[in-house]
Computed example of a mutant assay.
Amino acid sequence: MLRILLITPGATEYDQQGRVQGNLDIPLSADGREQVAKVIEQLEGFEPEAIYSSPCESCEQTAKQVGAALDVRPKTLDKLANLDHGLWQGMLIEDVKTKQPKVFRQWREQPETVCPPQGETVLAAKNRVSEVLRKVLKKHKSHDSVVVVAPEPLASVVRHVLRHDELTDFWGRRPGQAGWEVLEPMVPLKDA
């Protein structure tokens, strides 16, 4: 069974400031690069068939560092773009919480029921992620493992699609903390 190593990128300036990053293209900060280096140390002996990355700069930088260490060239997949948080992007999370407390609470408790102003629904992101993961699983079904580099909250959507579990509090997971976990997908992947 194919295993997916899900890696979240290191911190960006926006993460450190507590801002909603969404699909904005923000590079890793110095701390973020150090976080990725620590993750790489933990991956010694891991030999993935492929590395797939979200198109944001922090994920691409993370994927390049991981790829260089594991001797695998990363590939960027546009359908792994982070959720578009519309007008919330760039705002401090605290400001969203203060200015729109009911919507913020609903976003935390039931993220699939909220669409940020001029943003993307979780269902739309889930459909994108399901499609790309089905293709990855089909392409690599006879291999042991692949890497997927995705930022939060998209990484939570990836977990949800692969595990068939409930969507959880996107902002409860701390973005900007490079990390990794191994996921064994339940098959077949459900459609949204």
Results as ranks from 00 to 15, higher is better:
residue 125 A to S: 12
residue 10 G to N: 06
residue 79 K to P: 01
residue 32 G to K: 02
residue 35 Q to L: 01
residue 144 D to S: 14
residue 56 C to Y: 11
residue 135 K to F: 08
residue 112 E to S: 11
residue 51 I to Y: 00
residue 14 Y to R: 06
residue 191 D to I: 00
residue 173 R to K: 14
residue 70 L to K: 05
residue 2 L to H: 06
residue 9 P to F: 04
residue 59 C to L: 08
residue 39 V to K: 02
residue 25 D to W: 10
residue 67 G to W: 05
residue 15 D to Y: 11
residue 13 E to N: 09
residue 29 S to L: 07
residue 130 S to E: 00
residue 58 S to H: 14
residue 156 S to K: 08
residue 42 Q to R: 15
residue 158 V to G: 06
residue 88 W to K: 07
residue 189 L to H: 01
residue 44 E to Y: 12
residue 165 D to I: 07
residue 117 P to Q: 11
residue 29 S to C: 01
residue 24 L to P: 03
residue 171 W to V: 01
residue 11 A to V: 03
residue 80 L to Q: 02
residue 172 G to N: 12
residue 93 I to G: 02
residue 104 F to W: 15
residue 151 P to E: 09
residue 68 A to Y: 08
residue 82 N to Y: 02
residue 65 Q to W: 07
residue 81 A to Q: 05
residue 149 V to R: 01
residue 121 T to F: 05
residue 34 E to W: 10
residue 81 A to T: 13
residue 92 L to Q: 11
residue 35 Q to T: 02
residue 73 R to A: 13
residue 146 V to L: 06
residue 29 S to Y: 11
residue 173 R to Q: 12
residue 92 L to H: 13
residue 80 L to G: 03
residue 35 Q to Y: 04
residue 140 H to N: 13
residue 19 R to I: 02
residue 17 Q to P: 00
residue 11 A to I: 08
residue 138 K to W: 12
residue 101 P to M: 07
residue 115 C to M: 15
residue 63 A to S: 10
residue 153 P to G: 11
residue 18 G to N: 11
residue 171 W to D: 08
residue 144 D to M: 03
residue 117 P to D: 10
residue 71 D to R: 14
residue 134 R to T: 12
residue 17 Q to D: 11
residue 31 D to L: 15
residue 143 H to F: 11
residue 1 M to W: 04
residue 63 A to F: 10
residue 26 I to A: 02
residue 130 S to P: 00
residue 189 L to R: 00
residue 116 P to Y: 08
residue 76 T to P: 07
residue 52 Y to N: 00
residue 2 L to K: 08
residue 23 N to G: 05
residue 37 A to S: 11
